[in-house]
C-alpha cells in the first residue's frame, strides 16, 4: 500500500508572528520556517505504517516555492521514500488556497495512485482546516478527519476522531483521506546528520503549469491587522484579594 503525505512549509510554531506595519500581511522574511506540525504527525504515522509492514511506500508532496525543498529534505530524513515538489510560485508571500491545493493534490493522486492520503488537519498559518476534506471530495473518497488513532484493516481504515463531544470511530473504505490531530503520535526527532544525508537524495519537481489546474485565488485579502491587544492587569497577593477583586471590581463572581 502506498501512502501519500502532503506537507506544507509554514512559519515555525514557536515564532511570534508580526503583522507588517503597512497592513499588507505578516512578516515572513527572516523568520524560521518548519514543516507544519500536523504534517509531521501525518508523516510519522505513514512511516510507522511502513515500519510495521502495512505500507510499502511513503511519498511526500509539497506545493509552493522552491524553498519548500528544505521541508522535503526533513521529510526524507524522517523516512519518506520519495518527495515531490510542485513548484507553484516564487513569491513566499503567496499562500495558495486549499481549493487549489486540493485540486493539485488530486492530480498527484491520479498519477501516484496511493491507497491512503494522510494530511494534517490544519495548516497553522492560514488555520483553514479544509484541504483534506476538499481532497476527499475531489476524489470521491471517504474522509476521516482529526485522527487520534489509525488502523488498517482488510481494505478499510479504522479512524478514531477527536470531535467536540469526545471520540468517534469510523470505518472508511480504501482509498481514503485521513487528517491528523495532535494526539495521533509523537513525531520522531531527526538528527542533523540524517538531514545532511537526505541532501543527496533527489526531489522530483513538477511545474504547476504542467498539471493544468486553475489556482487563481477566490479570495482577495483586503487587509491584515493586529488583533486588539489585551492589557496585562494587576498581580494580587492573596486568594482573599482575588475574590474581592472578582466580586467588587470585575463583577464576575
Amino acid at each position: 500500500m502506498k501512502i501519500l503525505v502532503p506537507v506544507k512549509r509554514v512559519v515555525d510554531y514557536n515564532v511570534r508572528v508580526r503583522v507588517r506595519p503597512d497592513g499588507s500581511g505578516v512578516e515572513l522574511s527572516n523568520v524560521k520556517m518548519s514543516m507544519n506540525p500536523f504534517d509531521e504527525i501525518a508523516l510519522e504515522e505513514a512511516v510507522r505504517l511502513k515500519e510495521k509492514g502495512v505500507a510499502t511506500e511513503v511519498v511526500v508532496v509539497s506545493i509552493g516555492v522552491p524553498q519548500v525543498k528544505d521541508t522535503l529534505r526533513t521529510a526524507l530524513a524522517m523516512g519518506a521514500d520519495r518527495t515531490i515538489l510542485v513548484h507553484a510560485t516564487d513569491d513566499v508571500n503567496q499562500d495558495i488556497e486549499p481549493l487549489a491545493i486540493a485540486k493539485i493534490l488530486a492530480k498527484i493522486v491520479d498519477a501516484e495512485k496511493p491507497q491512503l492520503v494522510i494530511a494534517g488537519k490544519q495548516a497553522i498559518d492560514n488555520d483553514m482546516n479544509a484541504t483534506g476534506q476538499m481532497l476527499a471530495a475531489a476524489l470521491g473518497w471517504g474522509q476521516g478527519t482529526y485522527a487520534s488513532a489509525v488502523e488498517i484493516d482488510e481494505g478499510a481504515v479504522l479512524v478514531t476522531r477527536e470531535v467536540d463531544g469526545g471520540l468517534q470511530t469510523l470505518r472508511l473504505k480504501l482509498p481514503a483521506v485521513v487528517t491528523t490531530d495532535l494526539r495521533l503520535n509523537q513525531p520522531r526527532y531527526v538528527a542533523l546528520p540524517a538531514i545532511m544525508k537526505a541532501r543527496k537524495k533527489t526531489i522530483e519537481e513538477i511545474d504547476l503549469a504542467a498539471l493544468g489546474v486553475d489556482s487563481a485565488p477566490r479570495l482577495t485579502v483586503l487587509s491584515t491587522v493586529e488583533p486588539a491587544k489585551r492589557q496585562a492587569g494587576v498581580k494580587v497577593h492573596s486568594v482573599d484579594e482575588l475574590i474581592s477583586k472578582l466580586k467588587n471590581e470585575a463583577g464576575v463572581l
Partner: peptide
C-alpha cells in the same frame, strides 16, 4: 464552527467548486 461543520463544509465547498472560510 465545530468539529462537525468543519468536517463537512469544506467537502461541500469542493463539490460546488468554491472556497471555504473557516472561523
Amino acid at each position: 464552527a465545530t468539529t462537525f461543520s468543519r468536517n463537512i463544509l469544506p467537502r461541500v465547498a469542493m463539490v460546488l467548486d468554491v472556497m471555504v472560510l473557516a472561523d
